[in-house]
Computed example of a mutant assay.
Amino acid sequence: MTHVPAAPADIRVVLVDDQDLFREGVRVIVDAQEGMSVVGTAGDGVQAVRLVDELTPDVVLMDIRMPELDGVEATRQIFAPDRVARRAAAGASPVRVVVLTTFNLDDRAATAIRHGASGFLLKDTTPVQLRDAIRTVHAGNAVLAPGDLTALMAGSFVAPAPTPAAYLGLTDKEREVFAAVARGLSNTEVGALVFASESTVKTHVGAILRKLSLRDRVQIVVYAHEHGLVA
Rank of each mutant, 00 (worst) to 15 (best):
I208L: 02
G184V: 01
L100R: 05
G140Y: 04
D216W: 04
N141E: 15
S156K: 01
T150N: 15
A133K: 07
A231Y: 03
V84E: 11
P162K: 04
P162T: 06
A154V: 04
V181Y: 02
N141P: 02
S213I: 06
D124I: 00
L152F: 15
R215Q: 10
V230T: 02
A85R: 14
R135P: 01
I208V: 14
H204S: 13
V230G: 03
A145C: 04
F195Y: 04
A92F: 13
T171M: 09
I113T: 14
Y223R: 06
S118Y: 07
D106C: 08
A109C: 14
R217I: 09
A90N: 07
N187L: 00
V205G: 01
R135Q: 15
T126Y: 03
V143M: 02
R87H: 15
G191K: 03
F120C: 11
V205W: 05
S199Q: 03
G91Y: 01
A166L: 08
A165C: 04
F103M: 10
E226Y: 06
H227A: 13
R131M: 10
K123L: 04
P146W: 02
L168H: 10
K173P: 02
V222S: 11
T125V: 09
K123S: 11
P146D: 09
G184H: 13
T163P: 05
N187D: 12
V95E: 03
E226G: 03
Y167S: 03
T102N: 14
L105C: 00
A224P: 00
V230M: 00
T150I: 10
P162C: 14
A179G: 02
T101M: 08
S93I: 02
P164Q: 09
Y223I: 03
I220V: 15
A142M: 11
T200Y: 15
A231G: 09
K123Y: 06
G206S: 13
R217K: 13
A88T: 08
V177A: 11
P164W: 04
Y223A: 12
K202R: 10
V222D: 10
L144V: 10
A112C: 10
V181T: 10
D216P: 07
L168D: 12
A182Y: 08
A179Y: 02
V97M: 03
F103I: 05
T150S: 14
H115N: 13
G140Q: 04
A196H: 10
A88H: 02
R96F: 05
F195G: 01
M153T: 09
